[in-house]
């Protein structure tokens, strides 16, 4: 039922990009993303688009997969583009009464959309070629100098690892509960928005109960494995 959700959307492979150190990928992605915000000429956009296309090619990721990440934010892109087309003052191209389409409007809208698309695609490439666990690992190692400033980097990355680890588990659980409730007559697909939201109550309550149960079990297991010791020694 919810198999279409690909969170932690790792796409298995053995390309150069897959094998690269996660730190390299994180830093490079950050650099690219910052640059996408700074550039302002179509030539620069073309260069970055080419670079990203190359990464997709080297990473041997099916093109459809990289576009999948764009789907959920498509409404945002369209909305931003429309707002920009209609609200920018400048050389009038077409207009009727208060509705004015200007050259500057189209220009900003195009750049804004390109920017958003490239941002999403560049971060998708990172998540598609790196397992969530090696991502957090990489993040921990990048941030490790902060340990000297008493920032609990290790604890944070442990929290992230645990959270990531439980996403598939909870998705599976959600799927199971939805099926169980559907078996006794629950209907998640018909009705208006309000009714559909309400129909998820029989899924959410059991899901919360089970998440707490799991958290409790995990906390107990971690305490037994003496994962807290480190903090006690420091404090």
């Amino acid at each position: 039922m919810i198999k279409d959700i690909t969170l932690g959307q790792y796409f298995p492979g053995d390309s150069l990009i897959h094998r690269a150190d996660p730190r390299v990928k994180i830093i490079l992605t950050l650099v690219i993303m910052t640059n996408i915000f700074l550039i302002d000429s179509y030539l620069a956009f073309a260069v970055f688009a080419g670079f990203i296309a190359m990464a997709v090619f080297i990473g041997k990721i099916p093109f459809a997969y990289t576009l999948k990440g764009l789907k959920p934010i498509m409404p945002i892109i369209v909305f931003t583009a429309l707002v920009n087309i209609f609200t920018n003052p400048g050389i009038l191209l077409a207009g009727y009464g208060p509705v004015r389409i200007t050259y500057e409007g189209i220009d900003t809208a195009a750049k804004m959309s390109l920017r958003l698309v490239l941002l999403i695609m560049s971060s998708s490439i990172m998540t598609l070629t790196t397992t969530p666990i090696s991502l957090t690992d990489g993040l921990e190692r990048i941030l490790s100098p902060l340990k000297h400033l008493k920032v609990p980097v290790h604890e944070f990355s442990m929290m992230m690892t645990v959270a990531l680890r439980f996403i598939p588990t909870l998705l599976e659980e959600t799927d199971k509960i939805m099926k169980a409730q559907a078996s006794r007559g629950a209907d998640f697909e018909t009705g208006n928005m309000f009714e559909r939201a309400k129909s998820f109550i029989p899924v959410l309550i059991p899901l919360f109960v089970s998440a707490f149960r799991r958290a409790d079990d995990l906390a107990l297991a971690m305490e037994h494995a003496a994962i807290e010791v480190e903090r006690e020694e420091q404090g």
């Binding site: 509960i177 169980a180 078996s183 629950a186 059991p206 109960v209 089970s210």
Partner: peptide, 26 residues
């Protein structure tokens, strides 16, 4: 009627009555 593994994990209502009646109300 399918009874899933650990079916008690799907209980959610305030009372047993409401939980059992869920499908009939639907």
């Amino acid at each position: 009627g399918i009874v899933f593994q650990y079916p008690e994990h799907q209980l959610f209502e305030e009372t047993v009555y409401k939980d059992i009646a869920f499908g009939l109300i639907k």
